[in-house]
Design a protein around this nucleic acid. Sequence first.
DNA 1: TATTTTTTTTAGACATATCTAAATTCTTTT
DNA 2: AAAAGAATTTAGATATGTCTAAAAAAAATA
Lengths: 218, 218
Amino acid sequence: MLTLAEENHLKAILSISLINPKKITTNAIAKEISISPASVSDMLKKLLEKKLIKYEKYQGVLLSKKGLTLATNILRKHRLWECFLVNKLKFDWAEVHDIAEQLEHIRSVKLIDKLDSYLNFPKYDPHGEPIPSKNGEFPKNKYTPLNKLCAGEKGKVMGVTIDEKSFLDYLTKLNINIGTNLHVLDIIIFDNSINVLIDDERTHISNDVAKHLLINKL
Amino acid sequence: MLTLAEENHLKAILSISLINPKKITTNAIAKEISISPASVSDMLKKLLEKKLIKYEKYQGVLLSKKGLTLATNILRKHRLWECFLVNKLKFDWAEVHDIAEQLEHIRSVKLIDKLDSYLNFPKYDPHGEPIPSKNGEFPKNKYTPLNKLCAGEKGKVMGVTIDEKSFLDYLTKLNINIGTNLHVLDIIIFDNSINVLIDDERTHISNDVAKHLLINKL
DNA sequence: TATTTTTTTTAGACATATCTAAATTCTTTT
DNA sequence: AAAAGAATTTAGATATGTCTAAAAAAAATA
């Protein structure tokens, strides 16, 4: 069984490698969880002993298969709890992270299974991040959230990652449906909102909306 | 801010004093949280320094006002989470304790406020225990859960502590309503179920049902 | 390539929370 | 009231997880 500190280190390694899938440095982990590199170094020894990482002194670190499984499960729990906080308790998506950071360490397989089912097996968390399945698979990012497209790119709407009436109503109003073709004209850096062309009509879409639209890029 | 160990000690002291409101012994606390009396002794020093308890060496311990507030809040969180687990996630009431024991330590006032509201401000947990209010007051036990009555006692149904359709439907079937007069004939020790007289008719009520019926004893 | 800078690790310290064994204090019994 | 027994505390040890400062290794630069 993992201690809290071990879990936090594993999750940090996973988080970093999701952005940049190279060997992870001690410094990067230290920064991620706000502790000293020396402490990370200590912990890496411990995680190596437990065979949760692949690690050679001075050479950076990778998760082992076992470590990856465990870390992915923590991420899964984090994201499911975020869904609960936002979708059920009506938290603002910006305020849930710290609470989910605590909840992710609750130990009970049954709890997470039931929570998953209670939330209707969501595939994305309130920030649009994919939720790994029980066996550690990330939903295939076959489709790209609209907010990840660049200016000039075109694509077709293939789905949404939220199923609230108000959201879907709004999409209808914007003339967006499954199958709608989009052309990203430009992205406003200030608020990450987007100007798109829908059926030759120029429309402005907020980042909040864009991140929940799954696009099949052309 | 309290550490996990401090929270557990405070909660143990509160739990014991709810059953027997005398000075609490070191041994009793040790037994409650399954650690050695020596460790408890150490912790008591620490809690005294933080003014969370009233304590003199060898003389037992009481919660201070501050300690009582904090301990009550932990109990409140524990019982609210139990409601969530049973009422929303459909856990069996017997399996929620260990999970709630973890959840009770999650730190976020807003989370508990929202959870309380999401659960419709329950007054009793799934075991029929009262849930302290935000400001630490226990719901006045003006009424007694039916499962706490003894053989021979009589009373009137004043309310229920659960509002599920299936439960209420069942009560109707049993001819039980607000205002119904009951007479407890005997209690079956094996499963804590009860034989009662309702309108001169003999009825058998399970413990699960009885604990959710609030009785005004005659 | 030699030197400097940065990164990483080691060494040694400290706080928390636990333990066992021994000493102390309180309680009960005779 | 003294002795025996029980409860409590103290003393000293251990594990975890953190730190800072110093040493070692790797990377960058001159």
